[in-house]
Amino acid sequence: MEFTDTHTHLYYSYGTPELASQMQRCFDSGVKYCLLPNVDSDSIAKVLGTVAAYPDNCFAMMGLHPCDVKADYQQQLNLIEQAISTNKIYGIGEIGVDLHWDKTTLPLQQDAFRIQTGWAKDAGLPVSIHCRNAFDELFELLEEVQDGRLTGVLHCFTGTIAQAQRAVGLGLHLGIGGVLTYKNAGLDTVVSQLDLQHIVLETDAPYLAPVPHRGKKNESSYLPYIAQKVADLHGMSVDTIAAITTKNAKRVFAI
């Protein structure tokens, strides 16, 4: 049984003994592959260092997180683009739109999104998209930039079935994480209706730990809890969910 965590920041532990401990717990839990989304220029070295330490298991993505799109975003993008040009990466991310913390940066976030989806399309790479309190704005952007070449994952999907179908129609897979296990989140009613060919699993570690670890620091080794919930909703074995979602992840990210 092999699981794939399509979105984890476990590289935050790079340079500490905790990274090796986390990776060993991944292996013990059957989590074999981890996709590492960059967030800004400062985290590039940690992503690349983690990949160098675990080249058969960890795969880099590069992008500027929408919450890190500030006045200097062009400089940040230049640094990230330089890293892309000199390193093997498997996706552009974490990119997107976030209007939870700061709505005033929306025009900057939109510009950064257009630039980075352009990189992805030109390089034939998938994107990993963050969206918080911004589905309308994100879908408007996606409809603008989708020319048949854009692929990827709408990370940490927590929307409605209509929003899920719209995302799939725009060429995206849905990243399902720990929120699925939360009692009153309502995501279970959506996931139960989704074709499994359209979903991948993720933890977003160290955030959004699944039950029974909710409220604690998340890690990629907890991915089987999410897989088990998907299995329960679809009346399948967790082994089958692991196989389907890993196959989906390998197809999306070409790992």
Score class of each variant (00 low, 15 high):
42 D>P: 00
42 D>T: 10
43 S>H: 06
43 S>Q: 01
43 S>V: 03
43 S>M: 10
44 I>H: 02
44 I>Y: 03
44 I>D: 06
45 A>D: 15
45 A>I: 13
45 A>S: 14
46 K>H: 13
46 K>M: 13
47 V>R: 11
47 V>M: 07
48 L>P: 03
48 L>K: 08
49 G>A: 02
50 T>V: 02
50 T>G: 03
51 V>R: 01
51 V>S: 04
51 V>Q: 08
51 V>T: 05
52 A>C: 01
52 A>E: 15
53 A>W: 02
53 A>M: 08
55 P>I: 01
57 N>D: 07
57 N>T: 08
58 C>H: 01
58 C>W: 05
59 F>H: 05
59 F>R: 02
59 F>E: 06
59 F>M: 05
61 M>L: 15
62 M>S: 03
63 G>F: 11
63 G>C: 07
64 L>D: 08
65 H>Y: 12
65 H>F: 06
66 P>F: 08
67 C>Y: 10
67 C>G: 11
69 V>P: 02
71 A>T: 14
72 D>P: 08
73 Y>P: 09
73 Y>L: 10
73 Y>S: 08
74 Q>V: 14
74 Q>T: 12
74 Q>A: 12
75 Q>A: 15
75 Q>P: 08
75 Q>V: 13
76 Q>H: 12
79 L>Y: 10
79 L>D: 13
79 L>K: 14
81 E>Y: 12
82 Q>L: 12
82 Q>K: 14
83 A>V: 05
83 A>E: 11
84 I>G: 00
85 S>M: 11
87 N>A: 07
87 N>K: 12
88 K>M: 13
90 Y>G: 05
90 Y>A: 07
91 G>I: 01
91 G>R: 09
92 I>L: 12
93 G>A: 07
93 G>W: 09
93 G>C: 11
94 E>D: 09
94 E>P: 08
94 E>I: 07
96 G>I: 11
96 G>M: 11
96 G>Y: 07
96 G>W: 09
97 V>N: 00
97 V>C: 02
97 V>F: 03
98 D>H: 02
101 W>H: 14
102 D>M: 01
102 D>N: 13
102 D>L: 02
103 K>D: 12
104 T>Y: 06
104 T>E: 14
104 T>L: 08
105 T>K: 11
106 L>S: 06
106 L>V: 01
108 L>G: 06
108 L>M: 15
109 Q>C: 00
110 Q>I: 08
111 D>L: 04
113 F>K: 04
114 R>F: 06
114 R>M: 02
115 I>S: 02
115 I>P: 03
116 Q>R: 04
117 T>K: 03
118 G>M: 10
118 G>F: 01
119 W>L: 10
119 W>K: 05
122 D>A: 15
123 A>V: 03
123 A>H: 11
124 G>D: 03
124 G>I: 00
125 L>G: 07
125 L>Q: 11
126 P>M: 06
126 P>E: 07
128 S>A: 14
129 I>Q: 05
129 I>M: 09
131 C>Q: 13
132 R>W: 13
132 R>T: 12
134 A>Q: 08
135 F>V: 09
135 F>Y: 15
137 E>R: 05
139 F>E: 12
139 F>S: 10
139 F>I: 14
141 L>A: 06
141 L>Y: 04
141 L>V: 10
142 L>I: 15
142 L>T: 10
142 L>W: 01
145 V>G: 00
145 V>L: 04
145 V>N: 04
146 Q>G: 07
147 D>Q: 00
148 G>P: 06
149 R>S: 14
149 R>A: 14
149 R>K: 15
151 T>D: 00
151 T>G: 05
